[in-house]
Write a protein that binds this DNA or RNA. Structure first.
Lengths: 215, 215
DNA sequence: TAGATTGTTAATCGATTAACAATC
DNA sequence: TAGATTGTTAATCGATTAACAATC
């Protein structure tokens, strides 16, 4: 059991969890690091090292029990203790998350959504009520909200993040595409920079293209 | 000028580009690796190493010209040669991308969207026409489409990806949350695993929580 | 038991950081 | 010119891979 676990390992855990859930659905009962490595495109060594950061889940001579591993990795990631969250900004993206994203599978629950548009007031999307943005501060102060999900226009990103943190929110899932510049203290921020992702895709696409032309 | 550039460097380029665009808007004319590093939370060394993968954009004793750097990084990422793309699946997420995501800033253009719902047929969202899914294959074959943006339900992800590749698409921006299992040849795939992002946020949030409790 | 596969230590590789000569 | 800051080489650090004894 390692003292400090690197971000590289942490960022691979969700992927392991996805694979375990997949393998479980496929009725695969046990799997060796070699077999899993082949499927996931990792070395067996790396998989064993990763798992051993948390104390080792396998059995020598046998491999790993898929269900156990799924449960253990899930529990490291905390999927069975629910954190509460609110969606701020109910445009298409906010709506997409509320309607289609399976928060409960990942240990989250959306307790409310907020938007400035009066016509959205009181709307219920997938069981989540949309409230006026003016009530946000009150709501955050009187409810225990762990995470603010920011799906509003860039212009309001900074002030809203600061408001949320001031009102006790400890984590931000940031879809706005801007980097906060204020002081958010020790708030945990996870940025979803879709543009970074698309630019990377573009780079490799063009790189491939040019390689081909050279041949 | 390095021969092969590591993925770590490539994935930092979009972030550099974002900063250069930001600094340019702030009318910052020049910046040193030290100053930039402080703002971005990187070492000056790393920044200079990164830039020198591409031949060096700076001037000794002066630093880097922000506009030049923005242009050079943009050009490495290819933002000024447009790639064509189609959005497949016009639910909330597809709609969110078509309406709000500034594709042109990243060297992309959305030429069409597709959905199975008959009531969406012919709808125009932000200048993009929604076509019936049944026309997808024909469209891909008769138009030069570089990238398929998959924003449809998981159940159709694999078959649609395979269809797209068969019809000449060379890149996939995958929002479905599933990993393709078929053989997509040398197609460039960029996965947007929102769940990985949220799980990571959850992990660090809970880690912080526990640390606090220990104190 | 013999074979398989883990947990774990050691070796390698690559990425980041430090240092400094080149030069604007 | 003197000061600043790059480009680039060398040193360090960490992550991945290889090896193998432990053990199921």
């Amino acid at each position: 059991m390692k003292y400090r676990i690197s971000a590289n390992v942490i960022r691979r855990l969700p992927r392991y969890l996805r694979w375990m859930r997949f393998l479980e659905r496929q009725k695969v009962e046990k799997i060796s690091s070699g077999d899993l490595g082949e499927r996931m495109g990792l070395t067996a060594s790396q998989i064993r090292q990763d798992f051993n950061c948390f104390g080792g889940f396998g059995q020598q001579g046998y491999g790993y029990n898929v269900s156990d591993l799924r449960r253990d990795i899930g529990s490291i990631l905390g999927v069975d203790e629910t954190l509460s969250s609110v969606v701020i900004g109910v445009g298409n993206l906010g709506r997409a998350l509320i309607s289609n994203f399976r928060f409960s599978e990942y240990g989250f629950r959306v307790t409310a959504a907020f938007d400035v548009l009066p016509e959205l007031r009181g709307a219920v999307i997938n069981g989540v009520t949309v409230r006026p943005a003016s009530e946000l501060e009150d709501y955050l102060r009187s409810n225990d909200v762990d995470v603010a999900i920011l799906t509003l226009p860039q212009a309001y990103a900074n002030e809203t993040a600061e408001l949320a943190v001031r009102c006790g929110v400890r984590g931000i899932w940031n879809f706005t595409g801007i980097d906060f510049d204020g002081d958010l203290g020790d708030t945990v921020v996870e940025d979803v920079h879709l543009s970074d992702s698309l630019l990377t895709l573009g780079y490799y696409l063009r790189a491939r293209q040019n390689t081909k032309e050279d041949i």
